[in-house]
Nucleic acid binder design. Structure first.
Lengths: 211, 211
DNA sequence: TATAATAGCGTACACGTGTACGCTTAAATT
DNA sequence: AATTTAAGCGTACACGTGTACGCTATTATA
């Protein structure tokens, strides 16, 4: 079992995955991709597709996993940069925007198929985003000593804002425009952080006075 | 020119529009609808479709206009309720959620096709949302005496949050769950309002001291 | 009243789709 | 060395798609 065969198989499987990702663009969503198109882009006969996935749906779920991986990579990268000091919000947004620039198509998948057509698909995307939100929630709760419910609301709002900005950024070619968007997003996150901190403080006070 | 003919035409045109709207659901986006499906749902022969629209694309733009109308209706309704007193944010969110419950498919169109496949389509949706944002921006600026840039950032963030919540609400069957979502959304908007008010105040102070 | 315009239909076509089936060829197993 | 396994291909099929074309029936115009 030298595995030269399994190795080849993995290789062309990658080919399919990459082919699907490459076909994504502003005008082309995953759900509008056909099995034959993907196979052709990968240089395979349509029927060979089935040796790797039963379905376009299954390929899609694989892509979502890939996207989740990228998202976790994003978090790691941001944490490293934050450890070196600087504004947490600014660093996070800038890291996110960088990753969108280099992995555009992966994010297109998450952003577009979130309210897409297939229910299994939507569920998978939503799960990845929820995971991302929860991580952020934990961080906020610990770092800023927030009420847990407040931390969740803040994390949820922040993720919504950032992902929406990311979606907008994907359709921008001008880099100055992107920078402007980054700046605005950072400010909006600060709004949210400010409001969350205040509510958390108020809740702490009312809890203390009740005792 | 009694117009009985033009009247009939308008009537079946409506039939097509309604047919398209009725076919929208969690599993069915507009871009996945075929001309033949819509025609069949309307009780027409496929080729009769062309007597009213050149394209599915053109039908789509008509639907977006319809959605814009609904959006403006929302604003009017909210303003009326606000005039009677109460929390502006709470009333706005609740009005929005009501309209989503009664006009689900119209909103599905806006929320899903925002990053959809056709560029003319995306542009139209984005335009409607921008118009909505601008209206809110004017209101905020005037009612809360905000810096204009700050007002825009607040309006933009608020619309993002509310539309995202609306999108989530569309996939909920449980009404208690929806209520919980409303509550959370209201709180998130308050975060943003708080942060915006503070920044606006700070800017005013720095402007005054500079003079 | 005679003529023109037009909403709606049925037929027909070329095209892209998913996928069933059997074959080949090379790796894996015995 | 003989046999089994399986990746990839080509052919073939039924189906749904958009739409061109000509016809009919009814309303609008002259």
């Amino acid at each position: 079992m030298s595995g030269v065969r399994a190795q080849q198989k993995e290789k062309t499987r990658r080919l399919l995955v990459e082919a699907a990702l490459n076909q994504l663009s502003a005008e082309r969503s995953f759900s509008s991709l056909s099995l034959r198109e993907v196979a052709k882009e990968a240089g395979l006969a349509p029927t060979s597709f089935y040796r790797h996935f039963t379905d376009m749906n299954e390929l899609g779920l694989t892509l979502v996993d890939e996207a989740g991986l990228t998202l976790r990579q994003l978090m790691r990268q941001a944490r490293q940069r934050i450890a070196k000091g600087g504004s947490v919000i600014q660093i996070s947004v800038e890291t996110f925007m960088e990753l969108i620039e280099s992995n555009g198509n992966v994010f297109r998948l998450l952003l577009r198929e979130r309210s897409g057509t297939s229910s299994a698909f939507r569920a998978a995307v939503i799960r990845e985003i929820r995971y991302f939100t929860m991580e952020l929630c934990d961080y906020l709760q610990q770092a800023n000593d927030l009420d847990s419910e407040v931390a969740y609301m803040q994390a949820n709002a922040a993720v919504t804002i950032v992902f929406s900005a990311g979606s907008d950024a994907l359709d921008m070619e001008d880099s100055a425009e992107r920078q402007q968007l980054s700046k605005q997003t950072i400010q909006q996150l600060r709004f949210i952080a400010r409001g969350a901190a205040e509510l958390s403080d108020r809740r702490k006070l009312s809890r203390r006075s009740r005792k």
